[in-house]
Amino acid sequence: MSRKVVMTGTLGVMTEASLKVMEETLKRKMPDVEFKFLFDEPQDDDTLIAAAKGAEVIITQFQFMTDKVYKALTPELKAVVAYGIGYNSANLPVATANGVYVCNVPNYCQEEVAVHVVSLIMAEQRRMPKLIKWIEDGKWSGGYKAVAPVKRFSKQTIGLYGFGRIARHVAQMFSGFGCRIIAYDAIVPAESIKAAGVEPVDFDTLLAESDYLTLHVPLLPSTEGIFNKEAFKKMKPTAIFVNTARGALCNADDLYEALSTGEIYGAAIDAYTTEPPSGIERKILELPNVLSTPHVGYYSDDAFDDLIDQTADVVVNVLQDKDPGTLINRELWKK
Protein backbone atom coordinates (compact mmCIF):
# COMPACT_ATOMS: atom_id res chain seq x y z
CA MET A 1 0.00 0.00 0.00
CA SER A 2 1.41 3.39 -1.04
CA ARG A 3 1.98 6.22 1.46
CA LYS A 4 0.61 9.49 0.10
CA VAL A 5 2.73 12.64 0.44
CA VAL A 6 1.65 15.92 -1.15
CA MET A 7 3.40 19.25 -1.63
CA THR A 8 1.59 22.54 -2.09
CA GLY A 9 1.75 26.30 -1.65
CA THR A 10 5.38 26.91 -2.58
CA LEU A 11 4.91 30.15 -4.57
CA GLY A 12 7.32 29.64 -7.43
CA VAL A 13 10.10 27.95 -5.47
CA MET A 14 9.71 24.51 -7.06
CA THR A 15 10.59 23.91 -10.69
CA GLU A 16 9.71 20.84 -12.72
CA ALA A 17 13.28 19.63 -12.25
CA SER A 18 13.28 20.16 -8.48
CA LEU A 19 9.95 18.38 -8.12
CA LYS A 20 11.40 15.42 -9.99
CA VAL A 21 14.39 15.40 -7.61
CA MET A 22 12.04 15.57 -4.62
CA GLU A 23 10.03 12.59 -5.88
CA GLU A 24 13.14 10.57 -6.70
CA THR A 25 14.69 11.37 -3.32
CA LEU A 26 11.57 10.31 -1.42
CA LYS A 27 11.23 7.08 -3.38
CA ARG A 28 14.91 6.27 -2.92
CA LYS A 29 14.52 6.65 0.84
CA MET A 30 11.11 4.93 0.97
CA PRO A 31 9.98 3.14 -2.22
CA ASP A 32 6.28 2.94 -1.35
CA VAL A 33 5.86 6.74 -1.13
CA GLU A 34 3.38 8.22 -3.59
CA PHE A 35 4.38 11.88 -4.12
CA LYS A 36 2.14 14.48 -5.74
CA PHE A 37 2.53 18.22 -6.23
CA LEU A 38 -0.83 19.96 -5.82
CA PHE A 39 -0.74 23.75 -6.22
CA ASP A 40 1.90 26.46 -6.44
CA GLU A 41 -0.46 29.11 -5.01
CA PRO A 42 -2.22 28.73 -1.63
CA GLN A 43 -5.81 27.51 -2.06
CA ASP A 44 -9.10 27.86 -0.25
CA ASP A 45 -9.91 25.18 2.31
CA ASP A 46 -12.33 23.15 0.20
CA THR A 47 -9.98 22.99 -2.80
CA LEU A 48 -7.09 21.88 -0.60
CA ILE A 49 -9.17 19.29 1.25
CA ALA A 50 -10.40 17.71 -1.97
CA ALA A 51 -6.89 17.52 -3.44
CA ALA A 52 -5.06 16.38 -0.30
CA LYS A 53 -7.54 13.76 0.89
CA GLY A 54 -5.72 10.66 2.09
CA ALA A 55 -2.34 12.35 2.45
CA GLU A 56 -0.29 11.31 5.45
CA VAL A 57 2.14 14.22 5.08
CA ILE A 58 1.70 17.69 3.58
CA ILE A 59 4.83 19.64 2.64
CA THR A 60 4.22 23.37 2.30
CA GLN A 61 5.66 26.84 2.75
CA PHE A 62 2.75 29.23 2.33
CA GLN A 63 -0.50 27.20 2.49
CA PHE A 64 -2.14 28.27 5.75
CA MET A 65 -3.62 25.26 7.50
CA THR A 66 -6.95 25.94 9.18
CA ASP A 67 -8.89 23.94 11.75
CA LYS A 68 -11.34 22.98 8.99
CA VAL A 69 -8.54 21.51 6.89
CA TYR A 70 -7.04 19.58 9.80
CA LYS A 71 -10.38 18.13 10.83
CA ALA A 72 -11.17 17.08 7.27
CA LEU A 73 -7.78 15.42 6.64
CA THR A 74 -7.25 13.64 9.95
CA PRO A 75 -6.81 10.92 11.08
CA GLU A 76 -4.93 10.07 7.86
CA LEU A 77 -2.83 13.25 8.08
CA LYS A 78 0.11 12.65 10.38
CA ALA A 79 2.28 15.72 9.79
CA VAL A 80 2.69 19.07 8.10
CA VAL A 81 6.32 19.64 7.15
CA ALA A 82 7.38 23.23 6.59
CA TYR A 83 9.55 23.38 3.50
CA GLY A 84 12.15 25.53 5.21
CA ILE A 85 12.78 27.08 8.59
CA GLY A 86 9.57 29.04 9.17
CA TYR A 87 6.51 27.01 10.12
CA ASN A 88 3.89 29.66 10.92
CA SER A 89 1.68 28.59 7.98
CA ALA A 90 1.22 25.22 9.69
CA ASN A 91 -0.83 26.99 12.38
CA LEU A 92 0.93 25.25 15.26
CA PRO A 93 -1.74 25.53 18.02
CA VAL A 94 -4.46 24.19 15.72
CA ALA A 95 -2.24 21.42 14.38
CA THR A 96 -1.42 20.37 17.93
CA ALA A 97 -5.07 20.41 18.95
CA ASN A 98 -5.80 18.06 16.06
CA GLY A 99 -2.90 15.75 16.92
CA VAL A 100 -0.87 16.58 13.79
CA TYR A 101 2.91 16.88 13.95
CA VAL A 102 4.49 20.11 12.74
CA CYS A 103 8.09 19.76 11.57
CA ASN A 104 10.51 22.09 9.81
CA VAL A 105 13.89 21.94 8.07
CA PRO A 106 16.09 24.29 10.10
CA ASN A 107 19.59 23.33 9.00
CA TYR A 108 19.73 23.75 5.24
CA CYS A 109 20.64 27.42 4.69
CA GLN A 110 22.34 28.76 7.80
CA GLU A 111 25.45 29.87 5.96
CA GLU A 112 23.48 31.40 3.09
CA VAL A 113 21.25 33.55 5.30
CA ALA A 114 24.20 34.63 7.43
CA VAL A 115 26.15 35.66 4.32
CA HIS A 116 23.08 37.54 3.06
CA VAL A 117 22.84 39.43 6.37
CA VAL A 118 26.52 40.33 6.23
CA SER A 119 26.16 41.41 2.59
CA LEU A 120 23.20 43.67 3.37
CA ILE A 121 24.97 45.25 6.32
CA MET A 122 28.17 45.83 4.35
CA ALA A 123 26.19 47.31 1.46
CA GLU A 124 24.53 49.69 3.90
CA GLN A 125 27.79 50.46 5.69
CA ARG A 126 29.40 51.60 2.43
CA ARG A 127 26.10 53.13 1.20
CA MET A 128 26.27 51.10 -2.01
CA PRO A 129 22.75 51.92 -3.26
CA LYS A 130 23.48 55.66 -3.05
CA LEU A 131 26.84 55.26 -4.78
CA ILE A 132 25.28 53.22 -7.58
CA LYS A 133 22.62 55.88 -8.06
CA TRP A 134 25.32 58.59 -8.07
CA ILE A 135 26.96 56.91 -11.07
CA GLU A 136 23.63 56.16 -12.77
CA ASP A 137 22.86 59.90 -12.53
CA GLY A 138 26.01 60.59 -14.57
CA LYS A 139 28.16 61.79 -11.66
CA TRP A 140 31.62 60.69 -10.57
CA SER A 141 33.81 63.11 -8.61
CA GLY A 142 32.81 63.90 -5.04
CA GLY A 143 30.87 60.67 -4.63
CA TYR A 144 31.45 60.78 -0.88
CA LYS A 145 28.94 63.63 -0.71
CA ALA A 146 26.20 61.13 -1.57
CA VAL A 147 26.97 58.96 1.44
CA ALA A 148 28.38 61.19 4.19
CA PRO A 149 28.50 60.85 7.13
CA VAL A 150 29.92 57.32 7.40
CA LYS A 151 31.69 56.00 10.49
CA ARG A 152 34.53 53.50 10.46
CA PHE A 153 33.00 50.04 10.58
CA SER A 154 35.17 48.79 13.43
CA LYS A 155 33.56 51.46 15.61
CA GLN A 156 30.05 50.14 14.97
CA THR A 157 27.87 47.88 17.11
CA ILE A 158 26.14 44.89 15.51
CA GLY A 159 22.98 43.91 17.40
CA LEU A 160 21.48 40.43 17.09
CA TYR A 161 17.84 39.93 18.05
CA GLY A 162 17.89 36.22 18.74
CA PHE A 163 20.95 34.01 19.08
CA GLY A 164 20.18 30.79 17.27
CA ARG A 165 22.17 29.01 14.58
CA ILE A 166 22.08 31.74 11.93
CA ALA A 167 22.83 34.53 14.41
CA ARG A 168 25.87 32.58 15.62
CA HIS A 169 27.12 32.36 12.04
CA VAL A 170 26.63 36.12 11.63
CA ALA A 171 28.52 36.80 14.85
CA GLN A 172 31.39 34.57 13.75
CA MET A 173 31.60 36.28 10.36
CA PHE A 174 31.67 39.75 11.91
CA SER A 175 34.18 38.79 14.61
CA GLY A 176 37.07 39.60 12.27
CA PHE A 177 35.94 43.17 11.65
CA GLY A 178 36.63 44.37 15.17
CA CYS A 179 33.01 45.47 15.72
CA ARG A 180 31.25 45.24 19.03
CA ILE A 181 28.67 42.45 18.78
CA ILE A 182 25.74 42.31 21.20
CA ALA A 183 22.76 39.96 21.37
CA TYR A 184 19.44 39.56 23.10
CA ASP A 185 17.62 36.24 23.27
CA ALA A 186 14.67 35.51 25.55
CA ILE A 187 15.63 31.82 25.79
CA VAL A 188 19.37 31.35 25.19
CA PRO A 189 21.32 31.76 28.48
CA ALA A 190 23.69 34.72 28.78
CA GLU A 191 26.56 32.30 29.46
CA SER A 192 26.00 30.63 26.09
CA ILE A 193 26.07 34.00 24.32
CA LYS A 194 29.27 34.98 26.14
CA ALA A 195 30.89 31.67 25.24
CA ALA A 196 30.43 32.58 21.57
CA GLY A 197 32.35 35.82 22.09
CA VAL A 198 29.22 37.99 22.01
CA GLU A 199 28.00 40.42 24.67
CA PRO A 200 24.56 39.53 26.09
CA VAL A 201 22.27 42.52 26.68
CA ASP A 202 18.62 43.15 27.48
CA PHE A 203 16.13 44.15 24.79
CA ASP A 204 16.18 47.87 25.54
CA THR A 205 19.98 47.95 25.43
CA LEU A 206 19.91 46.11 22.11
CA LEU A 207 17.60 48.78 20.71
CA ALA A 208 19.52 51.72 22.14
CA GLU A 209 23.07 50.67 21.26
CA SER A 210 22.85 48.82 17.92
CA ASP A 211 24.08 50.58 14.79
CA TYR A 212 22.89 47.59 12.77
CA LEU A 213 20.08 45.55 14.29
CA THR A 214 19.44 42.22 12.58
CA LEU A 215 16.55 39.83 13.34
CA HIS A 216 17.04 36.11 13.97
CA VAL A 217 13.94 34.69 15.68
CA PRO A 218 10.94 32.67 14.47
CA LEU A 219 7.54 34.27 14.06
CA LEU A 220 5.61 33.39 17.21
CA PRO A 221 2.80 35.09 19.14
CA SER A 222 5.48 36.45 21.48
CA THR A 223 7.57 37.94 18.65
CA GLU A 224 4.92 39.09 16.17
CA GLY A 225 5.03 42.87 15.82
CA ILE A 226 7.66 43.25 18.53
CA PHE A 227 9.42 45.89 16.46
CA ASN A 228 6.82 48.61 16.73
CA LYS A 229 6.54 52.34 17.34
CA GLU A 230 7.91 52.02 20.87
CA ALA A 231 10.88 49.92 19.74
CA PHE A 232 11.83 52.20 16.87
CA LYS A 233 11.72 55.25 19.16
CA LYS A 234 14.40 53.60 21.34
CA MET A 235 16.77 53.02 18.41
CA LYS A 236 19.50 55.39 17.25
CA PRO A 237 18.51 57.82 14.48
CA THR A 238 21.57 56.49 12.62
CA ALA A 239 20.55 52.82 13.01
CA ILE A 240 19.94 50.35 10.18
CA PHE A 241 17.16 47.78 10.69
CA VAL A 242 17.89 44.43 8.99
CA ASN A 243 15.20 41.77 8.54
CA THR A 244 15.94 38.50 6.76
CA ALA A 245 13.71 36.49 9.13
CA ARG A 246 9.96 37.15 8.91
CA GLY A 247 8.19 40.34 7.86
CA ALA A 248 5.58 40.16 10.60
CA LEU A 249 8.23 40.53 13.30
CA CYS A 250 7.73 44.25 12.81
CA ASN A 251 4.67 46.44 12.52
CA ALA A 252 4.78 47.64 8.92
CA ASP A 253 2.97 50.93 9.58
CA ASP A 254 5.35 51.77 12.42
CA LEU A 255 8.40 50.82 10.34
CA TYR A 256 7.23 53.04 7.49
CA GLU A 257 6.78 55.96 9.88
CA ALA A 258 10.20 55.42 11.47
CA LEU A 259 11.90 55.29 8.06
CA SER A 260 10.00 58.13 6.41
CA THR A 261 10.42 60.54 9.33
CA GLY A 262 14.10 59.80 9.95
CA GLU A 263 13.51 58.16 13.30
CA ILE A 264 15.93 55.49 12.08
CA TYR A 265 18.37 55.94 9.21
CA GLY A 266 17.40 53.01 7.01
CA ALA A 267 16.52 49.36 6.56
CA ALA A 268 17.67 46.32 4.63
CA ILE A 269 14.85 43.82 4.14
CA ASP A 270 14.65 40.36 2.58
CA ALA A 271 11.34 39.25 4.12
CA TYR A 272 7.97 40.98 4.07
CA THR A 273 4.67 39.89 5.62
CA THR A 274 2.98 39.85 2.21
CA GLU A 275 5.08 38.74 -0.75
CA PRO A 276 5.30 40.34 -3.18
CA PRO A 277 4.90 43.38 -0.93
CA SER A 278 1.64 45.30 -1.17
CA GLY A 279 -0.02 48.18 0.65
CA ILE A 280 2.19 49.84 3.24
CA GLU A 281 4.93 47.26 2.67
CA ARG A 282 5.09 48.28 -0.99
CA LYS A 283 5.59 51.86 0.19
CA ILE A 284 8.41 50.70 2.48
CA LEU A 285 10.11 48.93 -0.42
CA GLU A 286 9.98 52.13 -2.49
CA LEU A 287 11.56 54.38 0.16
CA PRO A 288 15.00 55.71 -0.84
CA ASN A 289 16.55 54.60 2.46
CA VAL A 290 15.44 50.97 2.10
CA LEU A 291 17.51 48.24 0.45
CA SER A 292 15.27 45.29 -0.48
CA THR A 293 15.93 41.82 -1.85
CA PRO A 294 13.16 39.40 -2.93
CA HIS A 295 13.35 36.85 -0.08
CA VAL A 296 16.39 35.06 -1.48
CA GLY A 297 18.64 34.93 1.60
CA TYR A 298 18.15 31.18 1.85
CA TYR A 299 19.34 30.47 -1.68
CA SER A 300 22.33 28.64 -3.09
CA ASP A 301 22.36 25.53 -5.26
CA ASP A 302 23.88 23.63 -2.34
CA ALA A 303 21.18 24.87 0.04
CA PHE A 304 18.45 23.72 -2.37
CA ASP A 305 20.01 20.27 -2.55
CA ASP A 306 20.14 20.11 1.25
CA LEU A 307 16.57 21.35 1.58
CA ILE A 308 15.18 18.58 -0.62
CA ASP A 309 17.27 15.89 1.03
CA GLN A 310 16.53 17.01 4.59
CA THR A 311 12.81 17.46 3.86
CA ALA A 312 12.69 13.91 2.52
CA ASP A 313 14.42 12.64 5.68
CA VAL A 314 11.79 14.31 7.88
CA VAL A 315 8.91 12.93 5.81
CA VAL A 316 10.28 9.38 5.78
CA ASN A 317 10.95 9.42 9.52
CA VAL A 318 7.36 10.50 10.17
CA LEU A 319 5.98 7.74 7.92
CA GLN A 320 8.17 5.14 9.61
CA ASP A 321 7.20 6.32 13.10
CA LYS A 322 10.73 7.50 13.81
CA ASP A 323 11.60 10.74 15.58
CA PRO A 324 11.94 13.29 12.75
CA GLY A 325 14.33 15.32 14.88
CA THR A 326 12.74 18.68 13.96
CA LEU A 327 9.36 18.20 15.61
CA ILE A 328 8.03 21.55 16.86
CA ASN A 329 5.07 20.27 18.91
CA ARG A 330 7.18 17.62 20.62
CA GLU A 331 4.53 17.10 23.27
CA LEU A 332 2.68 14.96 20.70
CA TRP A 333 5.56 12.53 20.19
CA LYS A 334 4.46 9.00 21.12
CA LYS A 335 1.44 10.42 22.90
Score class of each variant (00 low, 15 high):
K71S: 14
T157V: 13
I240P: 00
H169V: 07
E24F: 10
G9N: 05
L11N: 15
E24D: 15
K283A: 13
N251I: 10
R246N: 06
E263M: 13
V100P: 01
V94A: 12
R330C: 09
Y108W: 11
T293C: 01
T214K: 03
I132T: 11
V217P: 01
H116G: 01
C103L: 05
L327D: 11
I132S: 10
G54Q: 09
E24S: 14
Y265R: 12
K145Q: 15
A303F: 03
L92P: 04
Y83C: 08
F39W: 10
E76H: 12
M173A: 03
L332N: 07
P75Y: 11
R330D: 14
I226K: 11
V6C: 14
E224F: 05
E111C: 03
I135G: 08
C250N: 12
E111D: 13
G164T: 06
M235T: 04
K20G: 13
A258R: 02
G138T: 08
G247S: 06
L48P: 02
K233N: 10
L319G: 02
D32G: 07
R246M: 06
M7E: 05
I264M: 08
V13Q: 12
G84A: 09
N251Y: 04
Q110M: 12
W140T: 11
D137W: 03
E111T: 04
K4E: 14
I328V: 12
E16R: 12
I166L: 09
L327M: 13
N104I: 08
M128N: 07
E34H: 13
T15L: 10
S119K: 00
Y70E: 08
E56V: 04
A245P: 01
S300K: 10
S292T: 15
D45Y: 04
K71G: 09
P189F: 07
